[in-house]
Simulated scan of single mutants.
Amino acid sequence: MNSTDANATADDSSAAPRKSSLRKRLVVLFTIGLLLSGGVGFYVYFWLTHPIGSGPASPAVAAEKFDEVWSERPVVLLGFGDSITAGFGASPGKSFFKRLLNNPDDEFADVQGITLKKVLPNIEGNNIALSGSTSIEMVDILLPKLETYPEETFGIIVASIGGNDVIHMYGRTPPREGAMYGATMEQAQPWIENYDQRLTSILDEIASHFPGGYHIFLMNIYDPTDGIGDVFNAGLPAWSDALQVHGAYNEVIEQTCEERADTTLVDIHEEFKGHGIHSTQFWRPFYHSEDPGYWYFDNLEDPNDRGYDSIRRLMLNRMADVLPGKL
């Protein structure tokens, strides 16, 4: 073999390892790219994507309880509270208040014909709820709007009171009473105690306008974070004591309902759990495999149409348990 052949052989033998090394680098880079893209896709779907789903929300309504008329007497359905009762974010005719009285044209088959007007033919609605109102503002603005009804009229009151106290002003201002976002539990404690007294005063004042009898259906406050408390994942400033403050408000609501024979708790907090910003996360204990739909409107504060459907269903079931005996 001459020197030229020897050099060529040496070049070929060194080129092979270089090509093999390049292939390995490309495989590694390709694998890393797949892992990164998969990780990004995983994060986007399970943290940033909120599919609403379709069809009826839960719970099922006990339809047999609406087969017969409950009463022929005059009844008023009074809406009192904030944007949830006002129906902010609902499509026309699909707030829970309106659906209690009338089915929309595209009503789900399982609740078609199940309305308060079917069992209370002489009912009328009066919704004075004000979007954005806190419990403090309800005392100043909404209570003066109440009219006193004649003794032959029975009142059914649906109310959402206190949610805006907790979430306002979304961290844009220092926390204060009526706008507690960002407060420590220590800061919030006197405001929570004031809310306890204020809630009782509001309910007492509403009751005084129905001398012919009444019953109140009071919602507690749901949690768009599904009990995790990571509000920053919803685009809001972090709040370390959010779940404690929120939980304290719900304790006041639930205790108030337990102490009052005229007030029934409507537990939207539990029913909405798993339908918030983590609704697609199948590894969570609250995951609803049969319906992982997101039930909140674009603003995170209010329900979307499916959320309002759920509240309507909760209300109908609670009303069917309580009202026939009272009427």
Rank of each mutant, 00 (worst) to 15 (best):
R198L: 09
R198M: 09
T200E: 11
T200K: 15
S201K: 15
L203Q: 04
L203R: 04
D204H: 13
I206K: 03
A207V: 08
A207C: 10
S208R: 15
H209Q: 08
H209S: 09
H209E: 12
F210G: 00
P211E: 03
G212A: 11
G212K: 11
G213K: 09
G213A: 10
G213Q: 13
H215K: 02
I216E: 14
F217H: 06
L218R: 06
M219S: 13
I221R: 07
D223R: 04
P224R: 12
D226V: 08
D226N: 08
G227I: 05
G227P: 01
I228Q: 14
I228D: 15
G229C: 00
G229T: 00
F232M: 13
F232N: 14
N233T: 11
A234D: 10
A234T: 11
G235M: 06
G235S: 06
G235L: 06
L236S: 08
L236T: 05
L236K: 08
P237N: 03
W239I: 11
D241L: 00
D241Q: 03
L243N: 02
Q244I: 11
Q244K: 14
V245R: 00
H246R: 13
G247F: 10
A248V: 01
Y249T: 00
Y249L: 07
Y249M: 07
Y249D: 01
E251P: 01
E251Y: 15
E251S: 09
V252C: 01
V252S: 01
V252F: 06
I253A: 05
E254G: 06
E254P: 02
E254A: 15
Q255L: 08
C257N: 08
R260K: 08
R260D: 11
A261Y: 12
T263C: 07
T263Y: 05
T263E: 02
T263N: 01
T264C: 03
T264M: 12
L265Q: 00
L265C: 00
V266Y: 05
V266E: 02
D267G: 04
I268L: 05
I268M: 05
H269D: 08
H269S: 07
H269W: 13
E270C: 07
E270D: 10
E270T: 14
E271I: 13
E271V: 13
F272T: 01
F272R: 00
K273F: 03
K273E: 09
